[in-house]
């Protein structure tokens, strides 16, 4: 056991924590200062976690099969960029993006279609809510049987997983505009489509973006888990399940890091678009 490493890591962690305690008590003058502190505190916490991880795994000689230190994972990422890129293309650029776009698009279109029929809404909404709580991921083996091993079957799983949250949220969002505003549109003699486009869709956009954000996470999970049921010899889920079998845990962690990064970036992009589109909403204005 290498005590100095462990103690060093713990000391670093404690001092980072102390700095954070001091940082959050600061009263910065401007908005920029406050924002810098808001970024620095979680960043410092993340770095200190990594240092603690590194120190403990190296200090206590934790077997790398159990938990490799971050530096080893990083080295593996650098060394196997082509494999990671190929997996990323197969899983993310094909299955996730196609499935996400088709699933969200279909959910949106169906919500618009049933918008004029309160009967269908009352029938579909409870079912949609129910299905959202089900372990839809279990449909993966069936989709693999129907659409083959390639990315099409994964995209099908993603479509089904993302469809229902989008449907439910859009239907709820379309009901979100107030009756006063709708009356106003009537006094303008606005038609159904004009009202939909100028009033109800903007009012529904916070709900729609909520679904888009939920779905961005679901889509990646769906595609990766569906690959456990059969793939061509490329893809993030395939790599994770085979490298686990060969006990190449550092490769698994490298793949997880890629998945985490792409998931976060995906989520971040959706959030940025949301901020641009729903700039009027209290949660974006910072009210």
């Amino acid at each position: 056991m290498n005590t100095t490493l462990v103690i060093g890591a713990v000391v670093f962690w404690l001092s980072a924590w102390a700095i954070n305690e001091w940082l959050v008590r600061l009263k910065p003058a401007g908005v920029a200062g406050a924002r810098a502190i808001g970024l620095a505190v979680p960043f410092l916490f993340g770095v200190s976690l990594l240092v603690l991880w590194e120190g403990i795994t190296r200090g206590f000689h934790v077997p790398t099969v159990l938990l490799p230190p971050p530096s080893m994972i990083w080295a593996r990422i650098i060394n196997s960029l082509p494999i990671l890129a190929a997996d990323f293309r197969q899983t993310f650029l094909k299955a996730v993006i196609v499935g996400y776009a088709a699933g969200c698009g279909l959910g949106f279109i169906v919500a618009i279609l049933i918008d004029r029929s309160p009967f269908l809404q009352r029938g579909l909404l409870p079912l949609g809510n129910f299905v959202s709580a089900l372990p839809i991921i279990g449909i993966a083996p069936i989709m693999v049987m129907w659409f083959g091993f390639d990315w099409q079957s994964k995209a099908a799983v993603v479509i089904i997983m993302t469809f229902f949250p989008m449907l439910v949220n859009t239907v709820q969002g379309l009901a979100a505009s107030g009756s006063m505003e709708r009356d106003l549109m009537r006094t303008y003699a606005a038609g159904y489509w004009q009202t939909l486009y100028k009033l109800r869709l903007p009012a529904a956009s916070p709900f729609i973006f909520n679904a888009l954000k939920i779905n961005s996470t679901l889509a990646l999970i769906g595609a990766i888990v569906a690959e456990f049921f059969g793939t061509p010899i490329v893809g993030m889920g395939f790599r994770i399940s085979t490298e686990v079998g060969r006990m190449n845990v550092d490769m698994v962690w490298a793949e997880i890091a890629v998945a985490a990064l792409s998931g976060s970036v995906f989520y971040g992009v959706v959030t940025l678009i949301e901020r641009a589109v729903t700039f009027w909403h209290p949660s974006v204005r910072g009210g």
Binding site: V24, I221, I224, I256, S264
Partner: peptide, 26 residues
């Protein structure tokens, strides 16, 4: 704890965007 709120909360939110289920087999 304000320090915990400022440092842990962003990571809790960020970790939701990570496909945790992918780690399950490992």
């Amino acid at each position: 704890s304000r320090a915990m709120s400022a440092s842990v909360m962003p990571w809790v939110v960020a970790s939701q965007t990570i496909p945790i289920l992918a780690i399950a087999p490992m």
